[in-house]
Amino acid sequence: MSAQFWLIQTLNAVAMGGLLFLLAAGFSLIFGLMRVPNLAHGGFFMLGAYLGATALDENLPFWLAALAAALGVGLLGAVLERALLRRLAGNEQGQVLATLGVAFIIADLCLMTWGGNPLSLSPPAWLMRAIAIGGFFFPAYRLAVLVLAVLLAVLLVALMEKTRLGAMIRAGVDDREMAEGVGIPVSRLFTTIFFLGAALAGLGGVIGGPILSAYPGLDTDMLPLALIVVILGGIGSIGGAFVGSMIIGFIYNFGIALFPNFAYVILFLPMIAALLIKPEGLFGRVPQ
């Protein structure tokens, strides 16, 4: 195969990895910090894509559409956490079922509101071009996705590792009861985390829109990817989510390109390997 094939596929893979990170970061935060396996996360992503499509239809600039969708989905996440998941604290089975129910509701409401036809989202005009890399042309938008993912990864790691807020959240994860015992308002922090995680998914939906578009089933296409990334990278680790996203981005891209019939199977192999060899994931912490 040509050098061009490898180069283009590599760029596609890292761009896909960037997109997966936007999807998985929020899932990892919520799962890692609150132990809530949020099965509505794919729905959050899809809802973000649809909200973004509508905002773009209203001629909002792309960045504003992305921000609005992130805020909207983030608020939905915060409300769900307060109204529903909080009441199920400690009841993981209940939470799984509740978030699954929410996922169905989101899917149905999206279908009712936006219909069954895929909606495409146009990238911002200044990114609708190709950039020459090593003599080949590559869509500028995909590179922008990667840059955004890297920026967000750095920001999230800084938030979690370098700020007092991040330390409080980690304290709540280490020992929730004791964190409350030193005056940390853990439940408010967890609502914040849910907002943030959902907002990231909504943002991911819009950012992914020009590549994936918005369509019924986008949610169930994305949710397994989020699961695979997070299990591979390690639950609750932003750095792990980033590395996991890149690995899965590569496997997905090259899998589809080289073994189109087995792409989906290949996708699950690293997850299974991780579960067998290092169940806490590449960067996961062993629970205390």
Binding site: R164, A167, M168, R170, A171, D174, G183, I184, R285, Q288
Partner: peptide, 17 residues
Amino acid sequence: RIFPSLTVAENLAVAAH
């Protein structure tokens, strides 16, 4: 029950009022 994944300084910072 100190917070093991926080540094010593962070353990104090999160509890300071």
